[in-house]
Nucleic acid binder design. Structure first.
Length: 706
DNA sequence: GTCAGAGTTTTTTTT
DNA sequence: AAACTCTGAC
């Protein structure tokens, strides 16, 4: 194959801006890519262009994606162009990249390559423990808020030494101290949390310029996808790595910035212009995904954001069907609506997997699941209570972690008495105190159980220590699957559930078997170490996890989880004020605008058919609320929609003697009325204990019963 | 160490 | 309304 032919092939079927983006390889490039504008195609061809035409070594290319799944997909698509050489490239998330770097360079910082990665749960319990150690009243100070503030600080590259509390709430006064204690505990446990992965890599590069230099010389061409959702620390990383050669291509869309609450700063788009003044900019505005109707609706909605750079997507896919807007009575009715449309779709020869239900918050999946379960529709929930959150899976993973990283105290505490080994609360306390007094790790204290004063269960603890040491030897050279089997057998963990006849425990056994399938697939794919396996699983996102599910099933997920994906038929549920936009985002303009971005993301996932629905009544915490249809719904011009369901605007005429139902007070009779239109006020006598109340129908949605 | 019953909390979004 | 956590009796 000649060089020229390759270039022609690579550029075939691309539009002009796309082609320019592929061949503009040198120097900084800002690629503004609207939803569905074929940016993945551009990215993969750009990488293929670098290797095939510019004859670059794949080893010198870095591509950072938002999820592991996106990385895998990109790898497969690049593979079509360049074959196995694709494996030499680093294509991964920021976090995965940092783990790879930190495992190699751990010795430069204060930990070993066996470090554990703390998940949000472990992080929460460690912070809570630190607060207890510092004698803070966790009733008074919410550990979750502390966790939140520390995470935000780390995203800004702050340390306990440089952190200054900016808030004025009571918790803000204690955060700094907890931050310091938490940092100390992490060090003791040889553990890093998610934010550290990025932060410590930045620290590594700042402190050891020669280490930075080797990576600068390695990553000659850098690509960053979903750039609008990078945070400050991540941007810093990109800047450092590309400082010498400036070959950095960032791809983003400010309208799809939806992670500000996690420290993402779309101002990084502006900083890029500031820090790379020679940057070129290319806009991709042709959408290949959605119908014209869907796109026009999305454009109309996003126009309402004041804080934005004008950009307008256009499509050549044809008008398509109108957007269905359904006013549901309640969440169950809403779910039944989706169900009936899905059944119709499949009845016409479509697949369940064409259909995806999106919602603002995980809790909304429940009503849909109930209905789908009853109707025996195959479905898969992405996110929520995931596989790795289950107790048995966390236990088994804790075994792997404790054995791989003996400093991992949290994991050790989790398993020391599971299954029961008669090592009780008191014994554990004594071991911890001993470790503290002798300046040892908990594992070392366990190994010296016989030396601990007054330790009743010394015999059992010693046996536990032997078991862990035995397993540590077994880990060497074993595949992850072999090792997993060893752990399950030697620890008696599997036996614990195998003996039980409870239905719940049978499910747990099945989950353990599922874990076995996962390690097998890992061994086949990578043949990595136990540490690699642990790193991979702790960095997996919800979207990554349903890879193994190959049934024809429909999917349920949050709008956040749907980012970057596309589906022929999309349902967006709960398009109501206080749900979407969420009530907790209504205080600030930025908050509402980010919700609008999120709605824009939801709408632009749909290729052919979009259903939007809202409920007249919604119950939350056992309380019924009546929400107005979302403002975003009003922002879509009527001509693109087709409305069904209950009349969204109830123009009820009230009269004395009429029976009505109030969402909270129940059924009552109108005994008096005054004012007209929006000013109208009713006096209603309720049958319930609430008696007589004055009600403004403009604010409270009453149902007329007769 | 287990269990029943009381009391409390839950709904943003997640690498 | 349902799920979780705590507490005290066995």
């Amino acid at each position: 194959m000649t060089k020229q032919l390759d270039a022609d092939q690579l550029l075939a079927s691309l539009n002009d801006p796309q082609r320019e983006a592929v061949v503009t390889t040198d120097g900084p490039l800002l690629l503004l890519a609207g939803a569905g504008s074929g940016k993945t195609s551009v990215m993969t061809r750009r990488i293929a262009y670098l290797t095939n035409v510019k004859k670059l070594d794949p080893w010198n290319i870095l591509a950072i994606t938002f999820t592991n799944k996106a990385a895998r997909e990109m790898n497969e698509r690049v593979r079509q162009w360049i074959g196995d050489a694709a494996d030499d490239m680093w294509m991964c998330t920021f976090h995965a990249m940092c783990v790879k770097i930190l495992r190699r360079e751990a010795r430069h910082l204060d930990f070993t390559p066996t470090f554990t990665i703390l998940d949000a749960d472990d992080q929460a319990s460690m912070i809570k423990q630190c607060m207890l150690d510092l004698n803070h009243d966790i009733k008074k100070y919410d550990p979750a808020s502390v966790q939140w503030i520390i995470s935000a600080a780390k995203n800004e590259l702050l340390t306990p030494a440089t952190f200054v509390a900016t808030g004025t709430r009571p918790v803000d006064t204690i955060v700094r101290g907890v931050f310091a204690a938490y940092d100390h505990q992490l060090r003791r446990a040889n553990a890093l949390d998610f934010d550290d992965l990025i932060g410590k890599t930045v620290l590594l590069f700042e402190t050891f310029p020669d280490v930075l230099k080797t990576y600068q010389e390695k990553f000659l061409y850098i690509h960053v996808d979903e750039y609008q959702d990078t945070n400050r620390a991540q941007y810093q990383l990109i800047r450092m790595l590309s400082k010498e050669h400036h070959n950095v291509c960032v791809v983003g869309d400010a309208d799809q910035a939806i992670y500000r609450w996690r420290g993402a700063d779309r101002a990084n788009l502006d900083y890029f212009e500031r820090d790379f003044p020679t940057r070129k900019m290319i806009k991709l505005e042709q959408n290949y995904r959605s119908t014209d109707t869907i796109l026009k609706a999305a454009n109309a909605v996003i126009q309402n954001n004041q804080n934005r750079v004008e950009k307008s997507l256009w499509s050549t896919k044809g008008t398509g069907e109108k957007i269905a807007v359904y006013a549901a009575q309640d969440a169950e009715d809403e779910a039944i609506y989706a169900l009936s449309k899905i059944q119709a779709h499949v009845g016409e020869g479509g697949r369940f997997s064409d259909c995806t239900v999106l919602y603002r918050a995980n809790a909304q999946s429940r009503a849909v699941e109930d209905v789908l379960l009853q109707a025996a529709i195959p479905y898969h929930v992405v996110g929520g209570m995931t596989f790795y959150d289950r107790r048995e899976i966390k236990d088994v993973m804790a075994y792997l972690r404790a054995i791989a990283n003996p400093q991992d105290e949290i994991s050790l505490l989790r398993i020391i008495n599971v299954p029961k080994r008669s090592i009780g609360e008191g014994s554990i306390r004594k071991l911890l105190d001993y470790a503290h007094d002798e300046d040892l790790t908990l594992m070392d204290a366990i190994k010296r159980a016989k030396l601990v004063d007054q330790l009743k269960s010394a015999e059992q603890v010693a046996r536990f220590a032997e078991m862990i040491e035995h397993l540590q030897e077994r880990m060497i050279g074993a595949t992850v699957t072999e090792f997993l089997h060893d752990v399950l057998r030697t620890s008696g963990y599997r036996e614990m559930y195998a003996q039980s006849s409870k239905e719940e425990d049978r499910t747990r056994l099945e989950n353990i078997d599922e874990l076995d399938r996962i390690t097998r697939s890992f061994d086949r794919r990578r043949r990595g170490t136990v540490l690699d396996f642990l790193a991979e699983t702790s960095l997996m996102t919800d979207v990554d996890r349903n890879e193994n599910d190959e049934r024809d099933a429909m999917r349920l997920m949050t709008v956040h989880a749907s980012k970057g994906l596309e589906f022929p038929v999309v349902f967006v549920l709960g398009v109501e004020e206080t749900v979407f936009p969420h009530s907790r985002s209504l205080d600030t303009i930025d908050g509402v605008e980010e919700e609008r971005n999120l709605f824009y993301v939801a709408v632009t996932r749909a290729k052919d058919k979009l259903h939007l629905s809202y409920c007249l009544e919604r119950s939350t915490f056992g309380q019924v609320h009546m929400n107005d249809p979302s403002r975003f719904l009003q922002e879509i011009p009527e001509e693109y929609t087709e409305r069904t369901g209950a009349d969204p605007v109830q123009e009820a005429r009230f009269e004395i003697g009429m029976t009505v139902r109030h969402p909270q007070y129940g059924v009552g009779v109108v005994t008096d009325l005054s004012g007209v239109g929006e000013e109208q006020m009713l006096t209603i006598t309720f049958r319930s204990k609430y008696g007589t109340k004055e009600i403004v129908p403009r604010i409270t949605r009453l149902r007329v019963l007769g």
